[in-house]
Every structure is written in C-alpha cells, then in structure tokens.
C-alpha cells in the first residue's frame, strides 16, 4: 500500500504575528459555517483555527500527492468528527471523493497535524520534531543516524533507511521555530 502521508506544523506565536484572522472576510474564505462556529465557540479561538488549518493543509498534501493537482481551496477540505483529549486530537477531513484520517497534537506553542488516506497508516507513523532552520535536513540526518532525508526526482521529500537501503516518501513541514518530519515507522 502506498504510504501517502501529509503533515503540517504551525508555530502559534509566528501565526499570531503573520495572520490577522479577525480581518473582514477571512474566516468565510477558508472555513465552513460549522468550522467557523467551532472556532468562535472555542475557549481559545486561535488555537482551534490553526488546528483546523493544519488538518486542511496536511490533507491537501496527501491529495496533491495522489492526484498531482495543485490548487488553493481550503474551504473544500471539510474537518469532521473532531475529538480533542488534552493534547491529542483525532478527526477526519473530506474533500471531494476523498476521506483522510487525521491525528494531531496541540501544545501551547505549536500544533502539528498528520493526514493519511488509510486508517491503518495512522499506526505506522514516526514524527521527528526539530528546530526550524535552513539546515533542518542536515540536522535530521545528524540526529537520526541510520536514516537519510533527501528529495526524489520530482522534488518531494523521501527518507532512506541506510541499513536496509529501503526508501519511503516522507512529509516535511516547517513554520516559525519548528520543523516536523513524518515518515512510516516500518521503514
């Protein structure tokens, strides 16, 4: 089974500097009416907003890899079945005929979402968090001896297990102070 994965990290501090989600028209361009209600009714609206955003963005990465289509249509990625327990989140995103499974983590400083297209894949994920810098691929290769992060011939990230010489696709996201690298645990 093709392990198509997508992830997205948001540095909440950076996001609060870069985006004014309270500007006129912002919410309804990106979020469905139900999602807007979730955001506005949340104890911390900005946290809910960025959680839903990372879910949409991680899902877009999966569908973009499956279809090869690039577009900017966050509104057509609909967040569903959201369950939040402390810092752990599960849910789904539907977009057209696709349904993606979501696992996310919320902290005071950042939010990270993972999207996969088969539920079983949620149990086969390894997430590596790093400080964001232009050297984060090198940082990953140094801190994860035995693995090498590179790009395939289409420019998508991939990771090779140097012991088995097996290569799998990876998903990489970086924002503000944080970088997150996602790949199959089975690699």
């Amino acid at each position: 089974m093709l392990p198509v994965l997508g992830n997205d990290v948001v540095d909440l501090k950076q996001a609060s500097i870069d985006s004014n989600w309270q500007r006129k028209g912002y919410l309804r361009k990106i979020y469905t009416v139900q999602e807007q209600e979730l955001i506005l009714d949340a104890e911390q609206p900005a946290t809910m907003l960025w959680l839903l955003w990372t879910m949409k963005e991680a899902s877009y990465k999966v569908i973009n890899r499956l279809t090869g289509v690039r577009n900017y249509s966050p509104l057509s990625y609909v967040c569903r079945n959201l369950v939040i327990r402390d810092t752990d989140v599960s849910g789904m995103v539907t977009a057209g005929n696709y349904s993606l499974y979501i696992k996310a983590e919320i902290t005071e400083e950042w939010i990270h979402s993972v999207a996969v297209w088969k539920k079983e894949l949620l149990d086969n994920l390894k997430i590596h968090y790093l400080s964001n810098s232009s050297y984060y691929p090198d940082d990953f290769n140094l801190s994860c001896a035995g693995y090498r992060l590179t790009k395939d011939n289409t420019g998508l990230p991939q990771i090779t297990n140097l012991h088995t010489s097996m290569t799998s696709e990876a998903s990489v996201s970086h924002h503000g102070r944080y970088a997150a690298i996602l790949y199959p645990k089975s690699l």
Binding site: D18, S19, R23, Y26, Y72
Partner: peptide, 14 residues
C-alpha cells in the same frame, strides 16, 4: 508566500 497568507492576498485583491 506562506499558504496561510495566500488568503490575505486574495482579500487584498478584492
């Protein structure tokens, strides 16, 4: 441009 800011470009153009 950060994809979260592309919506700002759209709103500014509007």
């Amino acid at each position: 441009i950060n994809s979260a800011n592309l919506v700002d470009v759209v709103l500014d153009v509007e």
